[in-house]
Design a protein around this nucleic acid. Structure first.
Lengths: 119, 119
DNA sequence: CCATTATATGCCGATATCGGCATATGTCAA
DNA sequence: TTGACATATGCCGATATCGGCATATAATGG
């Protein structure tokens, strides 16, 4: 039982959405549920490949399936995207308020300088 | 030149942050810049491993480096996290307003039913 | 029952990945 | 210069991944 060389894709949502085609699938499903062949047609990918990606998404809980006749209708289940959102959201300041924050720091320094002079 | 079996991790931020230890490194750096050995100490990982993860983060632009004497000080550069944020943000409704939306749909259906009766 | 449609699985090859260990590179200090 | 410190790289092994192709499974229609 050697050490795992890599975290399995099937393990968490972070890995699942690291694959561009899987994001594409989720994007399609965000507009509404769809049977596999629909996705195949839109994506222009071989059906087995699409099924495999759907499997990964299913295993991390990002999509749900429903049987309708001989079709399998997939639908988005965004619940497991929330952890990703929460994680990146914490970094929002690092891009949107990057310079603002720098300004804040400078402002603070100026204040301290001012107080020193008051002494 | 055979087809690539997998998108290189070094390719984009999505793949880079799919690795838990790399997220951990970013989390540490979000509190402020740090030299490699600092990270090594906190993470409790072998130094070469940390250096390799830092390399990946560097290559996708998620961190910047600065030479200070014989140390290399890494700092966060959140710019490339924004695409991830933007992507997941579009799914916000799929978890936070999931049931609200379902209610909306039901409401809409009821309205249509009502109109039919009016004819 | 049989053929057709819809989807999932299995096996394969090429390659990328993580982690381990040894070692190269670079910088300071005496 | 020599040696200690800080970090990066190289090579390796085990394994996971994506995509291709063939095939299994499942449900429907005739």
């Amino acid at each position: 039982m050697a050490a795992m060389a890599r975290a399995a894709t099937t393990t968490d949502a972070f890995n699942a959405v690291a694959e561009p085609r899987r994001r594409q699938i989720l994007d399609l499903l965000s507009a509404g549920e769809r049977p596999v062949n629909d996705l195949v047609a839109v994506l222009g990918l071989p059906q087995p490949l699409v099924s495999k990606h759907l499997r990964v998404l299913r295993e991390v809980g990002l999509v749900d399936v429903r049987d309708v006749g001989r079709q399998r209708v997939y639908c988005l289940n965004g619940r497991h995207l929330k952890p990703i959102h929460d994680w990146v959201k914490a970094y929002e300041a690092s891009w949107s308020r990057r310079f603002e924050r720098l300004d804040d720091v400078l402002e603070e320094l100026k204040d301290q300088e001012f107080k020193k002079k008051e002494d």
